[in-house]
Nucleic acid binder design. Sequence first.
DNA 1: ACCTGAACACCGTTCAAGT
DNA 2: ACCTGAACACCGTTCAAGT
Lengths: 226, 226
Amino acid sequence: MARPRKPLLSRERIVTAALTLIDEDGLAALSTRRLAAELGVSGPSLYNHFAVKDEILDAVADTVVAQVDLSMFGGGEDWRTALLHWGRSYRAALAAHPNIVPFLAQGPGRRPAGLKMADAVFGAMVEAGWPPAHATRIGALMRYFVAGSALGSFARGFVGDATAYDPADYPHLQQAHRLAEHQQQVDEGAFETGLRALVDGLALQYEELTAGRPAGAGAGGPQTAG
Amino acid sequence: MARPRKPLLSRERIVTAALTLIDEDGLAALSTRRLAAELGVSGPSLYNHFAVKDEILDAVADTVVAQVDLSMFGGGEDWRTALLHWGRSYRAALAAHPNIVPFLAQGPGRRPAGLKMADAVFGAMVEAGWPPAHATRIGALMRYFVAGSALGSFARGFVGDATAYDPADYPHLQQAHRLAEHQQQVDEGAFETGLRALVDGLALQYEELTAGRPAGAGAGGPQTAG
DNA sequence: ACCTGAACACCGTTCAAGT
DNA sequence: ACCTGAACACCGTTCAAGT
């Protein structure tokens, strides 16, 4: 066919198809040839729109991260409430596409949505009175927790076969084969428990930090540091 | 050469070489052919020792998890101290081999070291007085946090090129290009801050839970549930 | 500018053949 | 039992050729 009058492909079409393939069959199942076939073109066609395969993955990752709600920052919510709301939205966005999480969790790199999120979190924590170094740590530890929770289900990490848990070896895992049946309750319960614990624990550190300081700190001009 | 008088390969040699390759060049760089070449044999030889490539990865993952210290469970340490010590050892083991973490974080499956760890944590939390459902959640949320922290450095997730952070788009990231320089401080500081927050937050939940109960609970016989 | 087929250097895995 | 080379159906990417 050579060059068509109207382009057959666009970055957007490619990214959408790639995300579908990744969701359905995993990151390893995304090959440029299979993706091209899904789009009705030949393999090398993709290279007119992306330089390398990793650039496709970058674009996929950024559309996933772009789904995270950031409206809780900059509004009037206090930092604890904001972290709780953000954490839930962040997890929901990633858990909807767990197979891309190992790629995405390498950091924002140059991806706009990832950078925008880091900017919003860091800015809001500094504004709330956290010293910049602490604000960075909060962004980091939240990513650790959220990415870890979205990376793989804890419950589905245990096989459903009861004979896999020999009582002589694993005396406390005699019910572990039932975990997968309650996957959602287990994973969401663990996430919520951990999220609350994190924010409660951070609140204790915040109190220690601001004990000798006037309330409403952070209003010392716009602080910017990593 | 056909069959040699003494086997050229063993599962152990294969696993050691695989882990080295993964550490040096990443999970994607581990091919059966390259691994075989490293061991001085032809590609198909590996299939005399492992049924499929994933079985090699399972063995690699289990040797990494086997490095985690579990001695803090079963000893006399209280659950908070035990979680802190375990969390640090768990992270150290995984952070030494970050490239295998995405695989390993899928859960223990049938891997002995992974199951042994899950068994020890769950048993110790129940013994400490946590209801079984909570003990499960603690195991889960700790894995979320530790795996997330070992999966990828937060600091190295930001490019070191200052021009990547346009002030108009990312007003609060004007120092982000310096993060990579302080990689270890940032990541270890964030991990330690998060670990303490988690354990402190869990302690608050524990107090609420045991408010109306006699101290030293959990001595109601060996409880086993997921 | 945007697609194609051919080609290169790779993959994981199977299998018959060798000792 | 444990290795080999040949073979199959795949990869990512480059490139000259087509319109």
